[in-house]
Amino acid sequence: MTLTLTVPPGAKVRVRITNENGETTEIEVEPGETVTITLPAGSTVRVEVEVVDPDGRKRTETFTLKP
């Protein structure tokens, strides 16, 4: 399973991925970048995406991906 994120110009994104064992991976994606994350097959993962807009506003979306 893959997750692809494209960050709009001016925004910053931090992604936290937590697996079933509670292990967390965190990455930051710079403005204008596209990143593809390969998620472990057969695992349920929690993905938290934090977006910081150019004006400093933050918003966070959290979702769970199941196999």
Rank of each mutant, 00 (worst) to 15 (best):
L3H: 05
T64A: 01
L39N: 10
G56H: 00
V51A: 01
G42M: 12
K66F: 15
G22D: 12
T64K: 01
G56I: 00
P31V: 14
E61Y: 15
T36F: 12
N19F: 12
V49A: 01
T36A: 08
G32P: 12
L65C: 15
E28M: 03
R46L: 10
D53Y: 15
L39C: 13
I17K: 07
E28R: 06
L65I: 14
E48D: 06
P40V: 14
R46G: 02
D55K: 01
E30V: 13
E61L: 15
V29F: 11
T25P: 08
E28I: 02
V35H: 13
G56A: 00
N21E: 06
V49E: 00
R59S: 03
E48V: 05
E23K: 07
L65H: 01
P8R: 11
D53L: 14
T60W: 12
E48G: 01
V13R: 01
T24W: 07
E28K: 08
P9N: 07
R46M: 11
E20K: 04
E28P: 12
E30I: 14
F63H: 11
G32S: 13
R57C: 07
V29T: 11
P54T: 05
L39E: 08
A41E: 06
G10V: 05
T62Y: 14
E30T: 12
V7R: 04
P40I: 14
V13G: 04
V52S: 03
V49Q: 00
K66Q: 14
G32F: 12
L39S: 09
T36I: 15
V45S: 03
S43P: 05
I37Y: 12
E30M: 05
E61F: 15
T25W: 11
T62L: 02
V49W: 01
T2N: 04
R57T: 11
I37V: 10
I37W: 14
T6R: 09
T18M: 07
P31G: 09
V35Y: 14
A11I: 01
L3Y: 07
I17Y: 15
K66H: 13
K66I: 15
N21P: 12
E28Q: 11
N19K: 08
P8I: 13
L3V: 05
N21K: 04
L5R: 05
T62C: 15
L5H: 02
V7G: 01
G22S: 09
R57E: 02
L65Q: 00
T60R: 02
E33K: 09
T38E: 06
V47T: 00
T18G: 10
D55A: 02
R14Q: 07
K12H: 08
E30P: 06
A11C: 03
I27G: 12
M1V: 05
V49L: 04
T38F: 13
D55V: 01
M1G: 05
L65W: 15
T44E: 12
E48S: 04
V47L: 02
L5V: 05
P67A: 14
T18R: 05
V51W: 15
P8E: 13
E26V: 04
E61V: 15
R16H: 03
F63Q: 12
I17E: 11
R46I: 11
V7T: 04
L5N: 02
P67G: 09
T25V: 13
V7S: 01
G56F: 00
P8Q: 10
G22E: 09
V51N: 01
T6Q: 11
G42W: 14
R14Y: 10
S43C: 12
T44P: 10
E20C: 14
V35M: 08
E33G: 12
L39D: 06
T24Y: 07
D53M: 15
E23L: 06
T60G: 00
P54L: 06
V49C: 04
I27Q: 10
V45T: 06
P67R: 02
L65V: 12
E50A: 01
R46T: 09
T62I: 14
R57Y: 03
T64I: 15
N19W: 13
D53H: 04
T4A: 09
M1Q: 02
V15I: 06
E48T: 08
L65D: 01
G56V: 00
E23P: 09
L5Y: 06
P9T: 09
R14F: 12
R16I: 03
A11V: 01
V15S: 03
E33Q: 08
P54V: 07
V51L: 02
E20T: 04
D53S: 03
G56C: 00
L5A: 05
V35F: 11
P67E: 04
G10E: 11
R16P: 00
E61D: 03
V29M: 12
L5D: 01
T34E: 07
K12S: 12
V47Q: 00
E61C: 15
N21W: 08
S43Q: 15
V15G: 04
T34I: 12
G56N: 00
I37L: 10
I17Q: 08
E23V: 09
